[in-house]
Write a protein that binds this DNA or RNA. Sequence first.
DNA 1: ATGAATTAATAACAGATTGATAACATACTT
DNA 2: AAGTATGTTATCAATCTGTTATTAATTCAT
Lengths: 227, 227
Amino acid sequence: MKTKAIEIVIIEDEEDILELVEYHLQKVGYETIGFLSTKGVEQFLEEENPSLMIIDRNLPSYEGSEFVFNLRKNGYNIPVIFLTAKDRDEDIEEGFIRGGDDYITKPFKPRELVLRVKALLRRSGLIFNEKIKYRDIVLNISNHKVIIEDRDIELTNLEFKLLYTFIKNPNIILDRDFLRDEVWGEDSINFNDKTINVTLNRLRKKIDPMGEKEYFIPVWGVGYKLA
Amino acid sequence: MKTKAIEIVIIEDEEDILELVEYHLQKVGYETIGFLSTKGVEQFLEEENPSLMIIDRNLPSYEGSEFVFNLRKNGYNIPVIFLTAKDRDEDIEEGFIRGGDDYITKPFKPRELVLRVKALLRRSGLIFNEKIKYRDIVLNISNHKVIIEDRDIELTNLEFKLLYTFIKNPNIILDRDFLRDEVWGEDSINFNDKTINVTLNRLRKKIDPMGEKEYFIPVWGVGYKLA
DNA sequence: ATGAATTAATAACAGATTGATAACATACTT
DNA sequence: AAGTATGTTATCAATCTGTTATTAATTCAT
């Protein structure tokens, strides 16, 4: 599983605030890059593809929300949080209308900022929780451990990927093509029909040896569904 | 193709606030459904797959953020906005930690609420369970589930495709050639006249065992019509 | 209106397709 | 090279689905 570092752009002309924000974000593991103005930011977005942007509105030479509006117009879809002293109702509305995803007013609480960043990243599909839970299954993404009812269960890499795929899409029928692409990769050639059956069965045996949980419901002629 | 309305669930025990929120959301074109407590909400989510949820925290019998936490545990990934009077720093943090996407404190500004809803919907615009309704039939395309009057009905893949075809074309006479092409595929060769009859009958038995609904009207010598 | 002809509904059966499982073979890791 | 992980094949079991046969309903000509 690929764990790409998450990089966050912060645009803020007051250096002490910039440092404060960077400090708190770095503390929880994000990479940050600060700008004192919007200058050079667009080029940076183009080259680096950062995951999120935090931007002040009162910036020298280019008002923050206008800058975001222009980014959106140019097709940039990066998640944006405004962090600004402009706190009138109209200001906040303007922030959203011009393409912001969240709006935090100064003075701000660092922990709330971090949580809002995390929530927005999660909703944007850029991070996943290190742990995912479904029914009584707990998946620990970082160490590939699976815990079910306080029992540690060892899964192979393939089995883990398969289970992870289902837990990301619970209650949805995943057809065999999708599973093949997602778990085995799109370039898997000469893919045997039964490979999925067998792998899924090995997974079933491990996470539910008694066969009483009915995690995976076969959908005849289509695929499986995690119930 | 008909654009699916966006449906928003609001859980709020103070009726005047509930009405106020519904009013403002409806004004900008969203469908809303209000609940005075969390009772029945989970079942509703299962059946209707609404696009977003707004929830108070001080609710009778079930604290809002705990409810959301439990939803997340059960695999529901619906975007959630807390709308609550609980405004201490720890409350807000808790809201995000338990799975909220946004947190608005009362008293709130209706226009900001609407904008935050819109922003969150835009950012979430990933996969929503597609569902189609006709009369009292609810088809969930993503899990092939059929719900009729609160009853889950199991259909085979073929039966589902057949029903889906009719629900896509309600009140229109579908002739046998069309049904064959659509459900069985254009390359189906040596197609027996009676196959459609039998399959349709099996479907009828399952979705209307008492035979009182008259979903499918036979059109003599032509095909069938979903009434 | 009546009965023959045509089509639809229904039940029962059979074959075909698919899934589950075990056993084996190969590939991969260390 | 040993041990694990994964893919392949074969067999069995489950469940769909198509066919056929029979009965019921509808149309149409008389």
